[in-house]
Amino acid sequence: MDQPSLGDVRLAGQSITGRSESDLARFRRRHAGFVFQQIYLLDNMSLLDNALAAGRLLTTDRKAIAAKANGLFDRVKIGPDTRLKFPAQVSGGEAQRAGIVRALINDPVVLFADEPTGALDQSSGTAVLDVLTEVNRTGQSIVMVTHDLKSARRGNRVLFLRDGQITGDLALAPYESDADQARNDTLRSYLIEMGW
C-alpha cells in the first residue's frame, strides 16, 4: 500500500519496490490479505459480498468462489443468515471475522493484520484471535502488528519494533492456549527486556 523510502521490499520471491500503483494492486489481490483495526468492510454490501468482491477479482468461476467463501464463513463461525447481513447489522466481532474471510479468500501468501482486535470488546477480540490462530495452524502465514499482549501471545515469532527499527526477535513454540504459563513468561520477559 505504500512505497519504501529506503531499501527494497520483497514478498513471495518478488521485489515490490518501485512498482506502479496498479501493479501493486494486482500483487496485493494475489499474494496478500489484510485485516484492519477498523475492520473496513464495504458498508453497502453483505458480509458474503464483501468477501466475494475480493474473490471475484481473481476468478470468473462464480460458483466455486462462492462455495469457498461459504466454507471460510463456516470456519470463522458466521452462519448463513448472518453472512447475508450488511456490516452495520452485525457485531464488531462478526464483522472482523468477515474481514478475515475477505483477507483469506484469494489464498494469500501472507495475511497482514493491523491491530485486528483494537476496535473490539474482550470476548469478540478473543474470538477473532482464535480464528487467526486456527488459520495459522493450517499453514497460513500471518503478520500481525499489535500493542496488545493477548494478541502478541498468539505469535510464533515476535519482532519488536522501536522507531522503525527491529530491535528484538523472539521465536516461540506454536500457540496452544493462554494457559501455557512458561510460554507466557518467556514472552513477558522478552517484552520487558525490550522496554515495553
Binding site: 500500500m1 496498479s22 489484510f34
Partner: peptide, 15 residues
Amino acid sequence: QRAYGIQKAVGFTGA
C-alpha cells in the same frame, strides 16, 4: 473515499 480505499487495499486497481 474510504470504500474505494478499502477496494484498493484488497486489490482493485485505479482503472
